Simulated assay, not measured.
Amino acid sequence: MTLRLGDTAPDFEQDTSIGRIRFHEWAGNSWVVLFSHPADFTPVCTTELGLTAKLKDDFDKRNVKAIALSVDPAESHKKWINDIETTQDCVVGFPIIADADKKVANLYDMIHPEQSTTATVRSVFLIDPNKKIRMMLTYPMSTGRNFDEILRVIDALQLTDGYSVATPGNWKPGDDVIIPLSIQNPEEIKKKFPKGYEAPRPYLRITPAPNK
């Protein structure tokens, strides 16, 4: 199944480390970071899930829920969580989907045969409260994810949803932003961007962060 930005994230019902859930119901009105890992009891995945657990406060203040997935069963997840918490000094407070039948992995195209015919690659889906897919990232099995980048994209999307702006390359919260080309009316620009803007080119209009 090919998923694209703006598509509705496929719903599913599946066992997890916290019991059976229906995905859309579990997500509620939150943003969701859905990410896959190749297998339980593996080193890179252990560090990734530890990092995710430590980001709980950062996710909470952004109204984000995290949920992981691998093709191992729920009992394996529960045993592995003990290792994650012990070695990474954290509390795993988010569910891990037990996708032994690969139903969810296939829905989200997480198995890439040139990497593995059975295990998932490191996929990340950022899903908004309307259940729309807003960002997709795919990492190879050998490379751990950059969770600072995932938080940065969440911040950028939440800012651009709240204000009529776009974010430049390497943007971080508090940095200047860009006025989209879709806004051309001078009166509308004055109203939306009272802090003014600089325009080194007519198509490149830079304005201070509207939420500062």
Rank of each mutant, 00 (worst) to 15 (best):
M1R: 02
T2S: 13
T8R: 09
A9W: 06
A9G: 04
A9E: 01
A9R: 03
E13V: 08
G19C: 04
R20A: 15
I21E: 03
R22D: 01
F23E: 03
H24K: 04
E25Q: 10
N29R: 02
V32N: 08
V32I: 10
H37K: 01
A39K: 02
D40C: 08
A53R: 14
D58R: 15
F59N: 07
D72L: 06
P73G: 15
A74C: 15
S76T: 09
D83L: 05
I84L: 07
E85C: 06
T86Q: 14
Q88C: 02
F94W: 11
P95W: 08
A98E: 11
D99G: 10
D99F: 11
A100R: 08
D101L: 07
V104A: 11
I111L: 07
Q115F: 09
T117L: 02
T118W: 03
T120G: 02
T120M: 01
V124P: 00
V124T: 00
I127R: 06
N130G: 00
T138V: 07
M141C: 06
T143D: 07
F147T: 11
R152D: 07
R152T: 03
I154L: 14
A166M: 14
G174M: 12
D176W: 10
I178S: 06
I178N: 12
P180Q: 09
L181M: 13
S182G: 10
K191T: 04
P194N: 14
R201Q: 12
R201V: 09
Y203A: 09
I206D: 02
P208H: 01
